[in-house]
Design a protein around this nucleic acid. Structure first.
Lengths: 283, 283
DNA sequence: GGCATTTCTGTAGTTTTATTTCATTTTTAG
DNA sequence: CTAAAAATGAAATAAAACTACAGAAATGCC
């Protein structure tokens, strides 16, 4: 766990003097990692052995070892901070903020995923007679992307961003068909109804959505990303990106599961695309 | 820069003994950060002052300072490594590899972007009479996503993934119109033709593509992501993700540029979507 | 090749930093 | 209010890092 957070969490288990040390470190971690034990002790108004004892209480070998750990968590923490864009940000600032918060979001998503469920989803997708990807609004481009990837596999796959088409498709579905529904909130009414309809027609419903949402309740398998909703109006919906990466993961799992013969097919598709391109060295 | 990479890069500037130190560190960085100067010296078969001199050559204050830096780059470096998926990977392995390599890719993209060009692109987009997003194949979902975002701004925007529609749209374009073309390689023939056609009709062409590509040459403004092409068949096209984040950046720049009045409009759209949703606390 | 100069490298000593020991103070529980 | 336990810091000790210097290796010049 992050050392700073660990210190904060254990603040009340420390003794009075140790708490002084903790506070001095929390106040300026950057200073702390560049101080000697004597300096830090002076800064925290305690003796050197107290600092040493403080370090040991955090399961480190001693002060130098503690500094090392702290330095590492500082290095880890900074680039991943989810900083919000504000009105006065210039291009430099908002560009890096958006990239960094997207990366932070992917990190959260990665840690929150249940790989057993992913494996299960891959299982079901590989055995499907037909796969359909449905999304509405912002999620429709995710569905579109998923369609594009699975289409290359040369298997029956479809994608609709029109509710009427989605409904018709569900009504025509049968056992062995898999419907993948994409919705960040899981509270988009029409999509919840689609899930019900699909299940009534014996299709298997996989949802890329939030746990405990109405959509999740109506689905057979839920892949949740645990990415918080966007509260800030300036911040883009990073959840989309996480959904896309999850699609990549499913696609990769699918490819691996299908084995060698199948991968040859994939190579042929990639080669086929090349014909519609300018060659790299004809410029 | 990452300390390990720095050491590797400067290997030939070191003296014979210093190189021994470098190699000992590269062989096992984790051991190095937990060693004393004496241990490391013994391990590298050199004297202690040599280790010290080695540290100073890398612009650190001394050995402890060097250890701190090394520790930090180790903490930073690991999650960003672009490891390839291989046939024997289980769900756990390929999931984290894909997430991590996507994050690595975003990091590369972030560092390679020219914020001046971004600012310029935002300028042009804010002044456009009409904006069109065109992409083919995998890039069409990126175009679709961009359309979705700009559509919320209540400005004339369109998106086609059909070449014929794209051509018609270009022929009907005129001065003040902006066409945004999305192509990872920049070598998709039809799209290059679209760029020419658009410029012949006085539209401004922004391309999200690779530098030095045929498409880049035909465009007025090129935003390049510097993400390498996917060579491995298992690896998904992370470039798409970088493109999407770039779209997010442009959207954010657009919002900021338009100012307060405009943001109220954005809030209204967000509120409007809510009506089609289940409330959060009715479950 | 041989000599001078520069650069490298290690030994030994010095300084700084961290840790341990132990006596004193503070806190806690009965 | 007292005894035991816990916490704290002064001082001593140990460890680690650094410096100065001298000898060794490499380089350049004739």
């Amino acid at each position: 766990m992050n050392t700073l957070e660990l210190i904060k969490k254990n603040l009340d288990t420390f003794s009075k003097s140790e708490r002084k040390v903790a506070e001095a470190i929390l106040a300026s971690p950057e200073t702390a990692i560049h101080s000697s034990i004597a300096n830090l002790a002076k800064n925290a108004q305690v003796s050197e052995p107290t600092v040493n004892r403080f370090c040991r209480r955090l399961d480190t070998k001693g002060f130098p070892d503690f500094k090392l750990r702290l330095a590492q968590s500082l290095a880890n923490g900074t680039p991943y901070v989810n900083r919000n864009v504000n009105e006065n940000d210039g291009p430099e600032a908002y560009t890096s903020k958006i990239f960094e918060s997207t990366m932070a979001c992917l990190n959260v998503a990665k840690n929150g995923l249940d790989t057993n469920l992913i494996n299960r989803a891959v299982d079901i997708l590989t055995q499907a007679n037909k796969i359909s990807f449905f999304g509405l609004g912002a999620s429709s481009s995710v569905a579109h992307d998923a369609f594009n990837k699975f289409f290359r596999f040369n298997i029956p796959v479809s994608c609709f961003d029109d509710i009427v088409m989605q409904r018709m498709s569900c009504i025509n579905s049968s056992e062995g068909d898999v419907i993948v529904l994409i919705s960040h909130t899981g509270r988009t009414k029409p999509l919840v109804e689609i899930a019900q309809l699909a299940r009534e027609n014996d299709a298997f419903v996989i949802a890329l959505t939030a746990y405990n949402s109405p959509l999740a309740e109506q689905s057979n398998l839920v892949l949740s990303l645990g990415v918080p909703e966007d509260t800030d109006i300036y911040m883009p919906m990073s959840s989309r990106i996480a959904q896309l990466v999850l699609i990549d993961v499913l696609t990769t799992g699918f490819t691996l599961r299908r084995g060698a013969k199948f991968r040859d097919n994939l190579k042929r598709v990639k080669a086929g695309i090349k014909d519609s391109r300018f060659e790299k060295n004809n410029e």
